[in-house]
């Protein structure tokens, strides 16, 4: 565990908390893509299948449980409790366009052809693109609330910090994982345009509005 990895985990946790608090306090999930949230729930379900078979540390297990619980709590709030506020007309991204390629790629490019390893690899590929429905929704409506922007910034920072962690681990431990690193780079690159808008607009107190 190094400071970048911890920072990444905390940024991820912060993103999840921001999203849950936003939905809970405003009693609304307007502007949030339920499709992206489904993909995140699927991602962490596939990745943490080893929760009971591979004990790493108390920290590791607790974080896994928290991420899973938060992912399903978000789905519950969006699709059950505050269903009426869900903006499904703008959330039209086709999930199969992301799930099927991620599953196909996981079957072909993996570290080992076993169920748990292919599921882990699938989760890595799926997570890389899971935010696309959300970004698509923002581009469709042309704007995002500030709180949604903060959520996206924290979520994007998480994988960016993991990349720094992987560079650090490569030099300090000689450790590297090509699958996680390449997917992590793709994931972070997808946020670049958003990062630019966030820094130039939201941090200056303006609403995130896409240029016409």
């Amino acid at each position: 565990m190094n400071i970048f990895r911890l920072g990444g985990d905390l940024a991820h946790l912060l993103a999840i908390i921001i999203l849950l608090l936003k939905i809970w306090t405003t009693r609304s999930c307007a502007g949030i893509s339920g499709k992206s949230q489904i993909l995140f729930a699927l991602t962490f379900t596939a990745r943490y299948l080893d929760l009971f078979t591979n004990f790493v540390s108390v920290y590791n297990s607790v974080m896994k449980v928290v991420y899973l619980a938060a992912a399903y709590a978000t789905l519950y709030l969006m699709y059950v409790k505050f269903k009426a506020t869900y903006d499904h007309n703008h959330d039209t991204f086709r999930l199969e366009f992301l799930i099927l390629p991620a599953a196909g790629l996981a079957l072909i490019i993996n570290h080992e052809f076993s169920i748990i390893e292919v599921m882990w690899t699938f989760s890595i590929y799926l997570e890389a693109v899971a935010i696309l429905p959300q970004l698509f929704m923002v581009s469709k409506t042309g704007e995002a609330e500030s709180i949604t922007s903060h959520y996206l910034f924290a979520l994007g920072s998480y994988r960016a910090l993991y990349i720094v962690n992987w560079v650090y681990r490569y030099y300090s431990e000689g450790f590297y994982d090509m699958i996680a690193t390449l997917a992590g780079v793709v994931q972070t690159v997808l946020y670049c345009d958003f990062f630019y808008l966030y820094i130039t607009k939201v941090l200056k107190g303006k609403k995130l509005q896409l240029p016409a």
């Binding site: 990895r5 985990d9 991820h12 080893d50 591979n54 790493v56 540390s57 590791n60 974080m63 896994k64 991420y67 570290h111 080992e112 390893e117 882990w120 993991y162 962690n165 450790f175 590297y176 994982d177 090509m178 996680a180």
Partner: peptide, 10 residues
């Protein structure tokens, strides 16, 4: 041997 070590990440 990255197969096992990477699983300590989240």
């Amino acid at each position: 041997g990255s197969l096992v070590e990477t699983k300590d990440e989240l």
